[in-house]
């Protein structure tokens, strides 16, 4: 499984899509990737953030308009069809709590709740999210009051670098709701879709146990 982070975010230096010569397969893919992660009309397009050639390519790439609710706030956006839910959240709505680890479903750093269920935002096309209710790490706390699992991660010291933590917490919230907390082994298995390169697994299990009231 690939674990290399994919270059992302506004990368204006990438080759312009229309060159004097036909693009090779590789440059075309690279270009597509850059465009796919940077483009949203209705918020970003026309604000001068994109260099002209990319904006032109963006305007010509098929895009769609959709409304979704993120952490209780309704947004109407126009997205290039290639945009993932993760990039919509991070690049366009400014919600950078959800992390991009692998961009391939293989690490869980991008885990969010969609209509109450945990899923990988990197493999979710934003265009499919019409009417969806999305919860990210930014939407868990109630004002200054941390969610019980956020507090448990602090109490149990369940992270080091913290990169996997937002995904771990959203996944843990769902794991508790699903009732897969009867034993440490069961928690470990049902949390296995979230990789922690710092190896905080035992403490993550403890945190989930604590928030589930089993500790």
């Amino acid at each position: 499984m690939p674990t290399e982070p994919v270059p992302q975010g506004p990368t204006p230096a990438t080759a312009a899509p229309e060159g004097p010569t036909a693009p090779t397969r590789r440059t075309f893919i690279a270009t597509g990737t850059a465009v796919g992660t940077t483009v949203v009309a209705g918020g970003v397009l026309g604000t001068g953030l994109l260099p002209g050639s990319e904006a032109a390519a963006a305007a010509s790439a098929p895009s769609s308009r959709l409304s979704l609710t993120v952490n209780g706030t309704r947004h109407t956006v126009t997205v290039d069809n290639r945009t993932s839910l993760l990039d919509l959240l991070r690049e366009h709505l400014g919600l950078t709590g959800s992390k991009k680890g692998c961009d391939a479903g293989a690490c869980g750093a991008c885990t969010v709740l969609v209509d109450g269920r945990r899923q990988n935002a990197c493999l979710t096309l934003a265009v499919r999210m019409e009417g969806a209710e999305v919860t990210t790490i930014e939407g868990l706390a109630d004002g200054d009051q941390l969610h019980a699992l956020q507090q448990a991660f602090i109490d149990q010291d369940a992270f080091q670098c913290g990169y996997c933590t937002p995904g771990q917490i959203l996944s843990g919230v769902a794991c508790i709701q699903e009732g897969h907390t009867r034993s440490p082994e069961e928690i470990a298995e049902w949390m296995s879709g979230n990789i922690c390169r710092c190896g905080c697994y035992p403490k993550i299990v403890s945190a989930v146990q604590q928030a589930a009231g089993k500790k």
Binding site: M1, G105, G108, T111, R117, R118, Q119, N120, L123, T124, S171, A174, C175, E178, H180, W190, M191, S192, G193, N194
Partner: peptide, 20 residues
């Protein structure tokens, strides 16, 4: 896969999945 992926993935898609 994982709990997240199993929430998204379908039976029809599963038997259509391509090699790793």
């Amino acid at each position: 896969a994982s709990a997240q992926l199993r929430n998204m993935a379908t039976i029809g898609g599963n038997i259509m999945q391509r090699t790793r």
